[in-house]
Design a protein around this nucleic acid. Structure first.
Lengths: 394, 394
DNA sequence: ACTACTTTGTATGACTTGTGTACAAAAGTG
DNA sequence: CACTTTTGTACACAAGTCATACAAAGTAGT
């Protein structure tokens, strides 16, 4: 029951039918590969001959490759899988502390990786990124097809305008500079959106089956990446996902980025947890950061555990709001805090349960499946997902 | 960047291309009609000959009709418009107080309408609905193609399970009974979702241009209908939109449906406004209902106005949360409260502004465009929208 | 070793659909 | 009344899938 957008709708031509089927076949190879032409034909109800024609196209485009398979009683199939010998994407995970860059193959496997501290001076940081990109491009023999960048800020997908509160960068020409230096297309997105994109395309199987979920990225603030109907929802001007500024009560331990003590992120961010720890331990040392608190908690230190558990409780209240309002099939919690998942998971889930009003079916709440750097995978996904995404039709 | 759902994706056949273009042409006629074949060809960049073939199909299906137009210097066009001589849809707006039923043409114009009090006994109500449906069907010479029902409860679009808290109806066989009595397809949805669908397809032009918006339906509770990318988002089990149970503070004037005093609807529903009025006026009479309070406020009664304005303030807090999290292009407030829009609009907007943290672009907040019964139009839309919706493709 | 069977992948003509060009129809213009 | 403009239709052609036939390359039974 989708309404057609007449302004953007493209009428179908003869080749539209091939475009659609090509992407379907490619995705079968990606998700079920190695798989034979005959199996794809059975799954899609297309003819084997049609699949063969499409496969020929995909092989010419170097997206898939053939390996030989075992017979099941007849002629042995030639199995198709994604071509993963080449590096095709470059990802830039621009964080408030450090920037991580990597190259990856079509399947999202990281091939080369580098990192360096992020400089508050955008020009210095940009210079480092350009240098690193050129090094990574030089290390591979194949052709990189694009660069994806995730950063902690708001990015308007239409205009390219961006704003990074932590460094107070406004409308800096990151994409333009990088495109000029490398002649590659560059796409930029908010870190929570990028991480959600990564979970959608490269997360563990139980997430990949899911088409509606929310990723809650806990860092200095709290961001959310919203996935509806298998696509990241960006909202007007790319500003969706700022549920971190949702009012959930009053008297938070810290102020949010704009000075309110009623926002979710004032209750549930890393800064809130740190403030709680400092209050509990009566220490005020500026040498203590959130990573230290997590280390202490993992060692069993009482105050650190209490601070994290209290933070988890407020995380839960916000997550309960999202579950009730959006009924996602899953909620994923990502960011550094995923490291102490065992410490916080019980309190978080208990808080969600007690905040949910009706007898809703309980929604799975999971920690991120993408290891320590979901946002790096997100940056890579900005390039990779565009190759697999469904053909645009009305 | 949508991920293909391999389980549901249908590969494109030769006729897929026609299915897609047929719906595009139909929607041009719906939204821009009366319009000539030549104009559609120019807009879609399809050939005039192709448009002619598609138009022939649509005329055979009695979806559009031809009228003659004025020349602009050459052969005069024959203009196409939706065929609106027949009644095609039946809508049932099942409310907590009364049930309104109507038949409409393809363009959503109501042709016949009836209403009766809703009986708490589902069997009695069902009998009345069946009787009324048969009367309405008898009044028209054309063939009704389906029945849409909107009701204040949760409906699972997959299983058809439903739950109406106000009457404590659970899994009552409304659709089955009605289908058996009329042999027509029946679709049921939550009232807020249905109203959102109506705004999407039949709202005033400034809303019809918009593809991402939120409809806030204020009644006994507070429900939201969420529209993303031109489609109503229902969430898992059809339970999305229950932002009414979002925690926004504590100490609400009434309890929500499940006994919490922290939910948005405990602050911002009709019941909350009524409780505020009763407290202010120290009257406890059970003869006063929300409609009375609105009447008093429109006459200028101080306490009634104060109660409504205070309620609007809390409506604004919740709306601000939604704006920050979802960045819709517009927010529409619907339900009976739309009648006192001039009384509450300033307080509501002021509250939204003060609750929003960053300098977000200000989102238009509008009252419903569908008059007194947005949910009736919603019920009709359940049938009508399915005829115009985009063809399902991967 | 030979035959029968199974399964996979390819080749070929038929059908659907949009394209592009030509053309007829029906007005206005001077 | 001839010329121009615009609309709608007719027909050969191209792209794509379908259905069918067939070749290729195995296993299983005798």
């Amino acid at each position: 029951m989708r309404r057609i957008d007449l302004k953007k709708a493209n009428a179908a031509r003869s080749n539209t039918i091939r475009d659609i089927n090509r992407q379907i076949v490619l995705n079968y190879v990606r998700e079920m590969g190695p798989i034979s032409r005959a199996d794809i034909a059975r799954e899609t109800a297309l003819q084997r001959s049609t699949i063969s024609l499409i496969v020929d196209e995909l092989r010419v485009d170097k997206l898939i490759e053939e390996v030989s398979g075992e017979s099941t009683g007849g002629r042995p199939p030639s199995l198709l899988s994604l071509r993963t010998v080449d590096a095709v994407a470059l990802g830039v995970d621009l964080g408030t502390v450090k920037t991580v860059m990597a190259s990856s193959d079509l399947a999202g496997r990281v091939l080369e990786q580098e990192e360096f501290p992020t400089d508050a001076d955008i020009n210095k940081t940009l210079a480092k990124i350009v240098g690193c990109a050129q090094r990574l491009i030089g290390k591979t023999s194949s052709a990189i097809e694009g660069i994806g960048i995730s950063l902690p800020g708001v990015v308007d997908p239409e205009t390219g305008n961006l704003y990074v509160p932590h460094f107070n960068w406004r409308n800096v020409p990151i994409a333009e500079t990088l495109t000029r230096a490398t002649s590659l297309p560059v796409s930029i997105d908010n870190d929570a959106n990028a991480a959600a994109l990564a979970e959608l395309w490269f997360g563990r199987p139980e997430i990949r089956e899911v088409r509606d979920f929310i990723l809650v990225l806990v860092e200095e603030g709290v961001g959310t990446g919203i996935v509806f109907d298998g696509q990241v929802y960006r909202g007007e001007g790319g500003t969706a996902g700022e549920f971190g500024h949702m009012t959930i009560g009053s008297g938070a331990p810290v102020e949010c980025a704009v000075g309110s003590r009623e926002c979710w992120e004032a209750f549930a961010s890393e800064r809130a947890a740190l403030a709680r720890y400092q209050k509990l331990s009566r220490s005020n040392g500026s040498d203590i950061n959130f990573a230290t608190v997590m280390d202490l908690a993992l060692k069993g230190e009482r105050n650190a555990r209490a601070a994290l558990k209290e933070t988890a409780r407020y995380l839960g209240i916000g997550i309960a709001n999202l579950i009730q309002g959006l009924a996602p099939e899953a909620v994923i919690v990502g960011g550094p805090i995923a490291r102490v998942w065992p410490v916080i998971v019980d309190d978080l889930k208990a808080s969600v349960d007690s905040s949910i009003c009706r007898g809703f079916p309980s929604t799975p709440i999971l920690d991120s499946t993408l290891g320590a750097e979901p946002t790096l995978m997100g940056a890579l996904s900005l390039v990779l997902a565009s190759k697999f995404a469904s053909a645009p039709v009305a």
